[in-house]
Design a protein around this nucleic acid. Structure first.
Length: 182
DNA sequence: TAGGCCATCTGGTCCT
DNA sequence: AGGACCAGATGGCCTA
């Protein structure tokens, strides 16, 4: 796993013996970083939009009862680890998804957003085929695979036109070769 | 150098 | 109560 510089820094900084005054100030929302870019951003957004709508303590930061700094530190680190594991599982799922959607293989792997977009298009295409098959019959002289591939090509092309996503057009060549039985 | 993508930390909220 | 989930913040890496 790549170790990110920030992670290393962050994992030590905030919990290394915070002074009581500093902690209290943070809890009350007036940071010692006042005026810094970070604090400005926090002031502006402060998770307000989402939190406020949830109907609890409208945007005010509730002070959590917490034990000693050490205990809190340990709980935070455990929580960080769980979050890392969760994100790793999520990334594994993305990788699995990359491997089942048809696309042109290049050195550069699909980004997450590309993966989701392609998966969506692929599902749409398959859905179209299934719906089409449920009402039609196979033409004579063509194998099931050829018919399916040709339908997939047609459907994919249609979705590409609708979406206007240029980058996806490369996939047509792969689908086309599939339809040729190669 | 700007912008995209990503991993990680963080703390609030939800769920079991 | 504690873990899962979520989204904002941050900084590193890479590419055009």
């Amino acid at each position: 796993m790549k170790s990110k510089g920030k992670a290393a820094k962050r994992s030590q900084q905030p919990w290394s013996e915070p002074e009581p005054d500093f902690q209290l100030e943070n809890e009350l929302g007036c940071s010692e970083h006042e005026g810094s870019e970070a604090s400005l951003r926090l002031d502006r957004s402060w998770r307000g939009s989402r939190r406020e709508n949830r109907g609890t303590a409208a945007g005010s930061r509730r002070r959590r009862p917490h034990g000693g700094t050490k205990e809190r530190n340990v709980r935070r680190l455990e929580s960080n680890e769980r979050e890392r594991q969760r994100m790793h599982k999520l990334n594994n799922a993305f990788q699995a998804l990359r491997e089942v959607i048809p696309h042109v293989w290049t050195e550069k792997k699909l980004s997450k957003i590309e993966t989701l977009t392609l998966a969506k298009n692929y599902i749409k295409a398959l859905t179209t085929i299934i719906l089409g098959m449920s009402g039609g019959c196979l033409p004579h002289g063509e194998s099931q695979a050829q018919v399916n591939a040709s339908k997939l090509l047609q459907s994919y092309r249609q979705h590409l036109e609708e979406e206007g996503e240029e980058c996806l057009s490369r996939y047509l060549s792969q689908i086309h070769s599939l339809s040729q039985g190669r």
